[in-house]
Design a protein around this nucleic acid. Sequence first.
DNA 1: AATTACGTATAGTAACGACTGAACGCAATG
DNA 2: CATTGCGTTCAGTCGTTACTATACGTAATT
Lengths: 160, 160
Amino acid sequence: MSAKLNDDAAAVPVREDAKANFIEQHGLAAKQDGLPRIAGRIMGWFVINGGPISLTELASELSVSRASISTNARLLEGLGVLTRVAIPGERQDFYQIADSPYARLLEGYVHRMQGNVANIDSLISGLGKGDHGARHRARQMKRFYEAAITNTKSIIKSLS
Amino acid sequence: MSAKLNDDAAAVPVREDAKANFIEQHGLAAKQDGLPRIAGRIMGWFVINGGPISLTELASELSVSRASISTNARLLEGLGVLTRVAIPGERQDFYQIADSPYARLLEGYVHRMQGNVANIDSLISGLGKGDHGARHRARQMKRFYEAAITNTKSIIKSLS
DNA sequence: AATTACGTATAGTAACGACTGAACGCAATG
DNA sequence: CATTGCGTTCAGTCGTTACTATACGTAATT
């Protein structure tokens, strides 16, 4: 997956290409993380341009439907990546990139992993006396998740 | 689906339920991580039962098609979660849970994050002199990924 | 050889999710 | 009021993907 494509259209400004490319790549990366591609593109746009911006403007910026922008912006708001701000005198909703967006994302991640730990716990408490191997492997798995959780929490702390 | 929801046999129907439930929940969690649900169920089965087991046996254990088991087992093998072992005298392929499966998973995660960093770098080097905000936010994002990468690497080290 | 037992490749299906376009509700403006 | 502009909701479409069924290749058994 190497992506340095620089042979077509010669005299085009590379600057704008870099920005558009980043947005697109970030949308792709978001897909990898289980988020809709548009959500990733929105986030990429905010990394570059910061905001605040209205939904309709953002829709035309990324050339997608207003509906899609609306749902995905609220999704990102729920994840703590975007915050809704009111601009005095303006009727529209404006979105802005949150204060520490990545910390917010990690918090959701921690929450999911804690759910996994709970799942492991209910397995362990349901095991019989004979299931030595299963208990051992389940505990190993739990240790992994707990290590990941505490480490992630420390990252969150270092970002805030 | 007719499960065992009776109370006639005073045995321990709860035990088996716990195991089956764990497998199913783990399949669900895998979906969240972008893996096929069956891959997650396979992994859950191995956490409980360890292995080694042949593909056809595993297929009947999880009651899915042999083809699906085959592809997903190879997927997990590629991720470093399962290892193929040969049992002397047996013709079949046997799979076993790998030594430190979670460390392997995290390595893949690190790799993906490094790709993101590369993406950010190419954005930064494409920014003009005026894009102060963008450069600042991009650097912030890069710092986040780098922190996550080093922390994840330390987890990997602690698991190996 | 013929047959059996296994893993894999392939085509087809069924379900899922992202995204769009058109309606709706609502507030502010004319 | 009527209208305009906004965000949201909802039905529908399109593409993707997990999973199955079938066919295939191969190695061991007979």
